[in-house]
Structure formats: C-alpha cells, structure tokens
Write a protein that binds this DNA or RNA. Structure first.
Lengths: 357, 357
DNA sequence: TTGAAAGCGTTACCAC
DNA sequence: GTGGTAACGCTTTCAA
C-alpha cells in the first residue's frame, strides 16, 4: 500500500541514482567505492542514499564480482570447548580481514560434512576451513579444493592430501606423556577416545580416522613398544562419543580387576567424565589412578587434584588456519603449507608414581 | 587454456540445458525441482547435470527468490560455553528446518553488533537471532526488524521492544538464591558481573545494559531490600570482562577486611575465577566463603567442593529462539511472543550457613 | 509439457 | 567524469 513506510522492496542503486539525478553507473561508482567521480556528484549520491536509507545487496554484488566475502567453516562440534575456542580464533582473523564466517557443525559425521561442504560451495564461499571427520574420506574436500576454492585443514591433516594444514604436534605430545607414565612405573596405561570402529574394538591406528587422534595413538603405541610394552592395542578404548557413553566405558574400564593404573583422555570432555567416574567409584587420583587429559580446559586447574594436561594452542590453531586461508584468498599461490604448532605439558597433580602392583 | 580440466568457471543451467538438448527454462525446472517436466526430459537433464558436475549457485537462486536460506546469529562471545551451547541449539533447529547459520561475534560491543547486523542484512539473511549487548541501544535491531526480516532475541529481551524473545527467569532465580543466602545468615553478599559502567561503579540496575544481568541484579537487590538489607548496591561488582580483570576484582574484593561472606557469580567464567582466587588466597569454600554461580558449566560438578549453580536451559534457549524464528519464516504472523524458560538451582556444596561474623 | 524472455541488484566494459 | 548496457546464474511469467 504505502511503499514508503513498509519498505518491503529494498532500495537499489537505481533508486538512489534517480533521486540524485545521475545515471545508475555513476551512483554505483560512489556507492560501491570504485571508479572515479566528481565531488559534487559524490555528495549528491551520498545524500540521496542516506535519505533513501540505501543498503547494498551483497548477494547481487557477489553475483557479479564472483566473491562473497565469506569463509565457510566446518567443525565437529561447536559445543566442544576445543572447537569453540578455535572458531573464535578463526572468526577474529576473518573479521579483521573483512570476511564473514558461515559455521556448520558436522557432528563428526562424514555425510553431514559432505552436505555442509556442498551447501557452502553452493553459497559460493570464498574459502573453506574444515576439520575433517575422517581423514581417509576426503574426496569431497579434494573436489572442493579442485573447484578453485582455497581450503585449509584444521587440527586434522591428511597425509595423502596436499593442502594448507594446521595441526598440533599430537604424536610428540602423546609420546611424551606416555614416556613419563612409563617412567613412573605404569604398565597398564589406557588411552580413551571418541573415535570409533564398527566393532568398537581397536586393532591398528589405521582404525582411527580422525587425524589428530590417530597421531596421538601412534605416539602412544610406539612409545610403549620402545619401552618393551607390546600389544598395548588392547588398552585403547573407543566410542566415547557422548558423556553418557564415556561414563559407561569408564565404569567398565575402571571397575575391572585388571584396571589401568593410568589413563590418557583424548579431550577435555572425556577427561572430565573419567574424573567424575573415578570419583564416583571411589578411585583416588592420583594415588590409585593417574590421569592426563588433552586440552587445557578451564576446569582442569580447579579440581582436586588439578589435572595434568597437554596444552594445545587451540586459539592459535584457528587463527593460523584462517591466516593461511586469507593469504590464499589474497592471491598467494605457493605450495601448500603444513604448520605444526607446539603443545606443552602442564604438570599438575593428577599423575603419580606407581607404588606397587 | 583448457576449460575442461581447470573448471574455473562453474557450470550453469545453460550448460546443462545445452548438453541435454533442452531449453534453459526446462533444465532449470528439473534442476530446481519446481514446475513440471516429462520423465524423458527429466532424465536427460539429470544425466547431463551429473556428467557436467553441475552445482547450483545459491547466490543466483537467492537473487531471484529473495530468500537466502540463511539465518544470521549475533552472540556476545562464542568462546563462552553459554553461547556455544546456545548456538548449538540454534544450528540444530536451523539445519533441521533447512537453514544455514551465519555466526558473528559481537564481543559484547554495541558498535560491533551494529556492524554485524549491517553485514547480515546486506547478505540478505532471511532472519536474525541476536543477544543484544545493550538492551537500551536497540535502534539498529528495531530497524532490522522493520525491514521485514524476522528477528528473535536470545537471553536478553528489551521490554520496550516488541519482538519474539526467549529468556530465562533470571530475576526469579536471582531472588531465590539471594533469599537462600540471607536465610543462611549471610549479610555481606556480593554480585559480580562482566557488565560495566564508565566509572565502574554500580548505582542502579539501569546502569546495567545486559537484559539478563539487569533482571538478576534487580532480583538480588529487591530480595535484599525485602529482607531488610538496604543499600546493597555497593556489593555489586562490575567489569569482570576478562579472566584477568575478574581475578583482580576478586582479589581486591576478597582480601578486604570487610569482605563478602557469599558471592554470586553472573556466569560460569566468572564463577571459575572466583573459585580459583578464593583458593589462591586461602579462603575456604564454603566455610569462609559461600559461592553460587549462574550457568551449570561442566566443571562445577567436579571441584572440591562442587559448586552450587543456577542451571539455565541454555541449549533450549537457543533451540526455542530458532523455533520461533523458523515459524516466522514459515509465515506465522501473530503477535510477538516472549518465552521465559525456567531455571533450577542445583544444590551442591559451595554454600554454607554463616557461623558468626 | 516446453521455450522465450524478462527480471533480481550489482559490477564492469566501452564509448562519449 | 559520466552514461548506456551487457553480463552474472537463476527463477518466473507468459505463450505456444
């Protein structure tokens, strides 16, 4: 009815041009901030635009320029503090570089990840940051990369896939804490992760599709082997996907008579459940059970005892991935780079020498 | 050079149509899944599309349809577990309804929030979910809403602003825990929040721009007044924005000779720092200091003692906001709804009766 | 059921 | 400097 008050249809450059008494092309120049215009005209257009409350349509702009000013990010689970911190790093850098972030959760599910990437590509994001659910299944990523859209991998690389990648030195970190536990006399050391196999039994590191976790388990097993502890495969517990599942696994694991004397938790969400469970069943940390967790989550410092953790530079992980991507977006066309960020063990009080067995 | 291998330019409906030997319109019909086509033609087009590896351009699609299939979300800080959980709720519902989420951090800064909304509107999101940094400063939100884009407010309403809103019963929750503390004999009760004023001194609840926090402080002060504790305004501590700042405030607060005997932390990030600080300066919880925190963060259950908290239905907060928005997007045109979700006090062991003073 | 052509709101090229 | 106009890739009348 009243096209003035209920401004359903948004005002366009054409409207502004008409009001300012110039051509569409000229109005577009000042509104888009490109080309050259006289000061007089610039002012006229600016005034008209303000009067009409002109808002550029980025969609149309993207259509013609081919760039959307958007970075697509696919992570496993934004609820996990690891990812929310990494995403914070990504968005900070992205915004700084003038990009908007579209975020999609994969729920660590490959088919969801594929759908997410299809959506993102359809929306014509300028680049992608992905933490692949399975590093063995990256054909969709290859394809996205081949389509000319820069791609950066976060936290999980793929050795057979040459793209910009930012990971932590997981293998080294795992080896380090494993060695430490062994030196303290531990022999029955468990590693527990959310990763899973169809039969929920761990056979070889190749069973593990999540790059970062596979590297950690390799570090764990290799170190055990070097120390003369063979066949530690049976101490790798899988399927700790939800807190509930983790609790069940932890209970079974810790209540058995041949229970581990030390546990390595693959992330802080798992670490928390191990901590809760050990308390629940009355297993004293660190006297009866040593615990080391990956990810220096905030709570790990305030428990009694505080938990020894592998501190990963999570924010920087995200930051770096975004930086690499932005460089590509700005035309950098060099060979793919693999960045490995250093971790650090934060010694607290959840680890103790094994007294006797 | 070789337009076949390096498929820079993406394949369009026109390409598919040509290959299938039909018109652009027909190809578009089967590719877009609308209108009616014969089975023969449908197959031909489908085959051609697959052969060419056609990927729809959502941008172009949005241009003509006017809808982008996108929801814009603006939160204070994705790093805060409160928001990451709420965002999880939003994205789950959004994906289920076929929408993608664009996420922007405001850093609790109004001007950043304004910029975010401008960006989102420019990208022609179909709807917006915002947790406004300042509820007094919502003109940009009003405007976004007026432009015909549905808007839902998350966790922070604005009483003078009629839009779909989802909040928790913060006032009631704050009143409840305050009453409980008073009944336990506490008189010097502190409330500590990230909200801030220019002079960092609290005068009246109107100083507080964050809706949820203002309601809590009102509940706190009202209850104190009713209980015959006047002028409790001086026990409201502001400016706990970063963990570092919080630590400083906590130290000053807890080391003074007239220190509080009970502290209410406005969120779990603050609660954690209070906990750390009290331990650092050797103040026993709950014997020497009672602590109640808003937000049932995972760590609160595992400290010694575990922390009594106000459990907010955070995931549902996000979920509900998304649901309201999706309904609007599907044409619901009824009056704005204000949903208030119930909180619940989880009694743990960080609160004790005040022995003597 | 199919095709031709007119948009959608920009940018970008090319004359003037 | 400025204006006309052709893209961009899709949807959507309107005829045939």
């Amino acid at each position: 009815m009243d096209p003035n008050s209920s401004q359903r249809a948004s005002v366009t450059v054409a409207d502004v041009a008409r009001k300012a008494g110039v051509s569409k092309a000229t109005a577009a120049r000042v509104l888009g901030g490109y080309g050259t215009v006289s000061d007089r005209v610039r002012d006229a257009v600016t005034v008209a635009a303000r009067a009409l409350d002109y808002r550029p349509n980025e969609l149309a702009r993207s259509m013609t320029t081919g760039r959307s000013g958007t970075i697509g990010v696919v992570v496993g689970d934004i609820e996990n503090p690891f990812f929310s911190l990494a995403v914070r790093g990504i968005t900070d850098i992205a915004r700084q570089a003038g990009f908007t972030v579209i975020l999609i959760n994969s729920g660590e599910d490959v088919s969801a990840e594929k759908a997410a990437i299809r959506t993102l590509v359809a929306k014509r994001v300028d680049g992608l940051i992905v933490s692949p659910a399975k590093e063995s299944d990256v054909e969709h990523l290859r394809e996205a990369a081949r389509s000319g859209r820069p791609l950066a991998l976060l936290d999980r690389g793929s050795e057979a896939f040459e793209v910009d990648t930012v990971i932590a030195d997981d293998r080294h970190a795992a080896a380090g804490i494993t060695r430490q536990l062994i030196e303290l006399g531990h022999r029955r050391i468990a590693y527990i992760t959310a990763c899973d196999t169809p039969d929920r039994v761990f056979h070889t590191p190749n069973d593990i599709n999540t790059g970062s976790v596979r590297r950690r388990v390799e570090g764990f097993l290799d170190t055990c082997r070097e120390a003369g502890l063979p066949a530690m495969e049976r101490w790798v517990y899988m399927g700790a996907v939800t807190p509930e599942q983790t609790r069940q696994i932890a209970k079974r694991m810790l209540e058995g008579k041949n229970r581990p004397t030390a546990v390595i938790a693959s992330d802080s969400v798992i670490g928390l459940e191990i901590f809760k469970t050990s308390r629940l069943i009355g297993l004293a940390i660190p006297q009866e059970l040593s615990l080391i967790s990956f990810h220096d989550a905030d709570w790990t410092a305030v428990t009694s005892p505080p938990v020894t953790v592998v501190r990963q530079p999570v924010y920087q992980l995200g930051e770096t991935a975004a930086k690499l991507l932005v460089e590509r977006l700005n035309g950098n066309d060099t060979a793919p780079r693999k960045v490995v960020l250093r971790t650090e063990v934060v010694e607290r009080a959840s680890v103790a020498r094994l007294l006797e067995d």
